[in-house]
Structure formats: structure tokens, C-alpha cells
Design a binder for these strands. Sequence first.
DNA 1: AATTTGGACAACCGCGGTGCG
DNA 2: ACGCACCGCGGTTGTCCAAAT
Length: 309
Amino acid sequence: MALDKPKKVPKPKHRKGLWSPEEDEKLRNYILRHGGHGSWSSVPIEIGLQRNGKSCRLRWINYLRPGLKRGMFSTDEEEMILALHRDLGNKWSQIAQKLPGRTDNEIKNYWHTHLKKRSARAFSLAPKTSQELINSWSTSVSSSLSSPTSYSSKPLTQVPISFEFCHTFRASSACTEPAVDDHDHHTMLSSGLNGFPNDGIQSSLPKLFFEEWLSLDRTNTSNQQLNPSDDQLAAASILMGDTFMDNEFLQHERSSALDFESGQGGNWANDIVSYPDLCLDGSLADGCFNFGISNDHDEFSGFKYVMYP
DNA sequence: AATTTGGACAACCGCGGTGCG
DNA sequence: ACGCACCGCGGTTGTCCAAAT
């Protein structure tokens, strides 16, 4: 017996679980053809997928999007994640922004399965955040400041800064992170290179991390706060090669670096070489910026500046 | 050989923020 | 001002698979 039930509009049954290669193919083709800037909720309808828009978006971002690295994390990436997690906590999306080709989900999973225990161990042995490192560094450095610097009028330039030894490499070769001993890893210096240890290590120009520089300035100069626009100006000054030398602080750094290098017996041509790490679209890749000096043997001794906007 | 266990990764869920009508 | 849809994020759960029992 037929009942006159009100017609129910069937709720679209969305498939869940793992994506099939066919589904991937459909989604990839559609996004590549139409772009991923429309409404995600309409995407599965357009291509006949029994998925919801949210699921499509996630699949695209975490798996299908071009430029994803996949595969094992490098040691550098691991260190980066550990350091960023110390500073940012579970801000996976922010951490992912510093690691091109990695997704927040991927980093989050990797953290939980590989790095969490390691971090917990390290936590009990070392200062907890870079800020704490900086604070401890500044204490140890304050007594070793040999002379006030000429650029002391700017809050930006008044802070002690940590350096790590960088390396020399031929301009044509890829820049890889230098292998440094723990002994050398956190050599403390004043904001100039005054007192830079002339320990005979060839090509040991310092590496400065902007994150440390800027955050240190924020906390250590209570009455001379570096406001965000100054941060941006500083960053812009670094990124714009031509305006590089307008920065008094960096100018001082440069001359100190050159003094140091000449003391190392190098025949340096005093050329500042500077270049940002860029994405294909021209945006800053991972907050890194490199600069240094070159000699007449086409060797480059440089710093890598890491900036976290 | 069958079952259990645990690690690794993929995907989902819920919440808050934002933009728009 | 309000409601709605959408997006992005972080936490959680589900699934697969290899190693252990």
C-alpha cells in the first residue's frame, strides 16, 4: 500500500575515507583547469565526486597541490621544526610557512610521530625557547662588550647578537648549512664583530639570526621598543640589496666582517653579495636571506639571515 | 600461519574568523 | 545587525601495514 509521504530531499551522501586515484585525477584536473580560488563546495558537484567541498580542499592542499615535497624530512627541516615549535607551539600553519613544500598536516604528524619525544628530551637539557637562549646569551655577553658602538642611537643596533659560523663556498656551488661543532655553535659576540675569535678557523664569518635579533630587541629594550614598522623597515632594508648599505648597523657589520676576513689572510674584494631565498613567484621563500662578501677567487663567505615575519 | 600491537600517515571534525547579502 | 556560507586551523580519529607475539 502506497503512502503519500512527503518527498524527502535526499541528503547528498558524501564518501569518506581514503581517496582513490580516480578521484585524485578528477580533482587535480579540475583545479588545474579552473584554479582553486572558487567555491570549494561547488567543486565536487562540478566534477561528480561524492565528497564534500571541505574534503576536496583538504585533499588538494595536503596532497595534490603542486610543489609539495613529500618524502623524508631532512635534518635541517627537523631542526627547523624543533626550533619553531619551541617558539610558536602548535601553530602548525605558521611553522609550515617556514618550510616550503611541507603542509601543516604533514608537519603536525611528523611532530607527533618523530619529534615529540626528542623535543621532550631536549627540553629537560636545554633552554626552552630561543627567547630564553637569547636572554641567557645576553647575560653572558653583557660583560664582554668591549666598546660601545658608534650606532648606539638606534635601538635596533644596541642588542647583543648571536652568531653562528658560516662557511665559504664557491659562488657557483649550492649553499649548504655548515657543519659546526657544538663548541662553535653559539659563539657569543657583541653586536659588532669586536672580539670575534681569531681561532684560525678559515672562513668563519658569522651567521646571524634575525629572529633572535629582533625578538631580543623587543624584550631587552624596555624603553626603546622596536615597533613593528621598524621591523618591517629592517627586513625591507635587508631584502633590498641596493638599500643594504643604508642600514648603519649592517654597514658596521660589514666593515667588521671585512676586518675579520682580512685578518684571516683572505684576499677579499670587499664586495657585498646579497640575495634573498625566493620562491618561483618571487615571494620570499622561507624567511631566509643571504649576504656576505666575495673574494677574487669567486668564493663567497656569507651569513644566512633567518627572518620570521 | 594467525593474531595482536603499535607506528605512521591520511582524513575528518569542530570551532572560530571572515566576507557577503 | 544579523544570518549564512565558506575557509583555515588545530585536535582527533581512522586506516594501513609491518613487526612482534
